[in-house]
Design a binder for these strands. Sequence first.
DNA 1: TTCCTCATTATGGTCCGACCGAAGGGAAGG
DNA 2: CCTTCCCTTCGGTCGGACCATAATGAGGAA
Lengths: 246, 246
Amino acid sequence: MTAQWRPVRQSRTHELVLETIEQQLLTGQLKAGDRLPPERELAAALGVSRSALREALRVLETIGVLVAQVGRGPDAGARIVREPDDALGRVLRLHLALGSYGLEDVLEARVVLERSSVEAAARAGRTEDFEAAEELLAGMAGAEADAERFNELDTAFHVLLARSSGNHLVSTLTSAVRESVRALILGAERNLDDWPGTARKLNADHAELLRLIGAGEGAAAADLVERHIRGFHGAFVSSRPEDADH
Amino acid sequence: MTAQWRPVRQSRTHELVLETIEQQLLTGQLKAGDRLPPERELAAALGVSRSALREALRVLETIGVLVAQVGRGPDAGARIVREPDDALGRVLRLHLALGSYGLEDVLEARVVLERSSVEAAARAGRTEDFEAAEELLAGMAGAEADAERFNELDTAFHVLLARSSGNHLVSTLTSAVRESVRALILGAERNLDDWPGTARKLNADHAELLRLIGAGEGAAAADLVERHIRGFHGAFVSSRPEDADH
DNA sequence: TTCCTCATTATGGTCCGACCGAAGGGAAGG
DNA sequence: CCTTCCCTTCGGTCGGACCATAATGAGGAA
């Protein structure tokens, strides 16, 4: 194997701090819900400046592992939380914009993830999610004129299906990927010739998808969701010929 | 729809800075390879303190969108880059540790992603990746005694297959998910009764997988990789009964 | 007593000014 | 022409100060 040496880039203080805290997370010494000491105390305890500590905390915050609240009382200060969705969404969104991967890749990823989601959802059969999905569906039917609102509900619908699969990770990834192309999809919808008609078609897909999932027909639902995604996604990719290289 | 209000959490300076820079990324005013102005200048231009700016830059750095180098010359300063893999890996790793999702979820996600990867790889048929994979395979055969090294090569092997699919996004996700459980897998391997025997079996799978991909038999390769992952992953999940809730 | 009001205090958020160390650029000297 | 050494330009770090926010608790009014 050809040796690949990456620069060591050693010892930026905030990275050391980060490692320390990460270790405590990985070993379970820090759990969700725990509070960190006040910044000034922790900085002193770690022997670093408050600025360096704050940079490390900021990183944890963007990862969705920590939130901070000002003020006083039991809810104030820095707390460990579990909110990966926004973090992943932001990463994917920015890298999509930078062309770290192309739209085709996003299309394939969506197909793969959502096929798996709907199959699992059909197996799980959660009626409460089913009802919520019905509501979203009704909302979309009423919002066919308003592309922005439709897009919002559409995203919520797909994310709900993913969540209904019972697999948090796949759901998080699905949600993040879907969010990352949200602005693009919205832009494409606005440029379509016959948007209301397209919206109706999409909604018909959604209704049928929901029916199949409710009936436990996972395989059929998976095929439908693939057609659904490829159909629309493919249509607007072709109208946006900026291919991203790498 | 029941209204869901999340707190506005408005106007932390570094978030405003972040939005500004993100906008420039999303609109293409900032592209990969571009250099940002020196921190002091940029801070002054944005009308914020250097600390606030630095926190925003740190966020971009953890997202894998920016790197900073000290010193002088054309390569110094903050540059826009495209390195999503480490960022995603870190997010998933920490959230796995926090129990944002369970091991079962990771198993399913790996199955879904890697099935897709090997099918695509079989279609793409990149001979150069094939050769690199052969090398890794040989390396693993020689490292059956050393669990750590084996694990390293194993990870590299799966990541290589993913990359060979030609889909950067799926490859990145695969790599991140695989990295996130790397420490866990290593720990499990060390606790196995018959590790060398297991290693041989895994390697046999790898060899056969590579053969199928080379022969263009994507479907068979997908089935094999699913059995491969479920077999081993399932075995060690059962020996580690800490189920993560949410 | 009970309730409202207001000062106190703990906490994160922001800013400033200073200094350190790394690394390219260029002048001085061989 | 090449080497050596200083200077300048960067990010990285630090300490201290002040602000905004929000719970707390004391003190006064009903």
